[in-house]
């Protein structure tokens, strides 16, 4: 799928222009006082002995069939739709040492080719538990704070491996991410690169290794210091490369993709609400596969 190539892509281009225009408008009209987004799993809790929890619901999917980077006909109506509800937690020993967990509950369905027709497959259950140890190096300079992080992670095979559309491939996987984030009284930015090594799972199934880059640029659109309320609008760009895996498991088709879209986050004291929408700006699958589609992510978290 070349960038903004088909009529669908032209629609996306229009949407992208609208989003950028909206961002520019917000930036021009935003008040002097403003706040940056601080997801529970990123900057807060920054204090020693602090802990936090977050619920996040993510959905994505499409019936758009791709061969390499081009959209092709889909006469059988093949499709895939996934909904994941994540329960996440963090504990902060001090600002430079934390531990995190993330556990998804997954509900998914797809329509796959079966002879001359197609058949529906679906599954539901717990996904793989992800444990992480974010190590951060902070520096504060007046109205500016920034940090470098390295996060080794482990993905445990707690997910459901049964059914014709398994949620997990049952493997122990290892990951690491490197990130940099900074913010001042108005602007914030986050750059994160990561790599996941996917091991062989049950029945020799593999999802394939994954590498990615996340970029967030944020601007504080509202701040009320006396009430400790703040809101931020961000632009997110997510790039992924997935190695080709086993077609039995979710997202195992492999390829390269770039998703982008706006994020809106608002907090009051220690509670944060976040909603993000992303659409595929570029996708190049390995062979024939379904487009990941549009993503909607809604979350609420609290730090104590």
């Amino acid at each position: 799928m070349k960038l903004f190539q088909s009529s669908t892509m032209r629609d996306r281009q229009s949407l992208f222009v609208v989003v950028l225009s909206a961002l520019a408008l917000f930036q021009l009209s935003s008040p002097t006082y403003s706040y940056a987004d601080q997801p529970v799993m990123n900057e807060a809790p920054r204090w020693a002995g602090g802990y936090g929890f977050q619920f996040r619901h993510e959905s994505y999917g499409s019936d758009e069939l791709l061969r390499d980077d081009s959209e092709i006909d889909n006469p059988l109506g093949l499709s895939r739709y996934v909904e994941e509800t994540w329960f996440e937690g963090v504990y902060t020993f001090d600002r430079s040492k934390r531990v995190t967990f993330k556990l998804p509950y997954v509900k998914q369905r797809r329509r796959v080719a079966s002879g001359d027709s197609s058949e529906q497959q679906k599954n539901e259950g717990l996904g793989d538990l992800v444990l992480g140890v974010p190590l951060k190096l902070y520096e504060n300079k007046g109205a500016f704070t920034h940090s470098f992080s390295i996060t080794p992670s482990l993905r445990l095979p707690t997910g459901k491996t049964s059914g014709d559309f398994p949620i997990s491939n049952g493997s122990w996987d290892y990951g690491v991410s490197l990130s940099y984030s900074s913010e001042d009284t108005r602007w914030s930015q986050l750059y994160d690169i990561f790599y996941w090594r996917d091991s062989d799972g049950k029945h020799g199934r593999r999802d394939g290794d994954e590498a990615g880059l996340n970029i967030d640029w944020g601007y504080r659109v509202y701040t009320n210091d006396p009430l400790n309320i703040g809101a931020t609008l961000m632009l997110d760009i997510s790039a992924r490369y997935n190695e080709r895996g086993d077609s039995l498991t979710t997202g195992a088709s492999g390829g390269t993709r770039i998703h982008t879209g706006p994020i809106f986050a608002i907090f009051k004291d220690n509670i944060i609400f976040r909603v993000e929408y992303k659409f595929p700006a570029y996708e190049d699958t390995i062979g024939t596969s379904l487009c990941r589609g549009q993503e909607l992510n809604v979350g609420i978290g609290a730090a104590f």
């Binding site: 940056a36 601080q38 504060n140 220690n270 730090a303």
Partner: peptide
């Protein structure tokens, strides 16, 4: 120093 965000400085 660096307390530019009310959510992350909530601990104070």
């Amino acid at each position: 120093n660096g307390a530019v965000c009310g959510f992350c400085s909530y601990g104070i």
